[in-house]
Amino acid sequence: MIPIAWYLVLASVLFCIGAFGALTRRSGIAIFLSIELMLNAANLTLVAYSRIHGDSAGQMFVFFALAVAAAEAAVGLGLFISIYRLRHTIDVNRLNRLRW
């Protein structure tokens, strides 16, 4: 049996890779992808905890997190399309106005 700590360690490393990407990438899409990576790492942690405790509540949380991620992706990508129509870029360094 694999020690459960390994899953948690893997999840935390994945989370930190995603956080690094969200901090350094400049394209809006790439930042979004990094955030999805972080969400996925959190899901892995929840499933591992659900396994430790023999309780399926963690799995339900992951189910809801997946649904919220779908909603978030739909709204976020819609915003990107709208921003691109106005500014012809989604480079976050150029999107520096609160109002335009």
Binding site: P3, A5, V9, S12, F15, C16, A19, F20, L23
Partner: peptide, 19 residues
């Protein structure tokens, strides 16, 4: 990211290494 990953790994490892 490295420092944060190190802290998390250490936390999880010490808490669940012998679970």
């Amino acid at each position: 990211a490295l420092v944060f990953a190190g802290a998390l790994v250490r936390l999880f490892w010490s808490a669940y290494a012998d679970t």
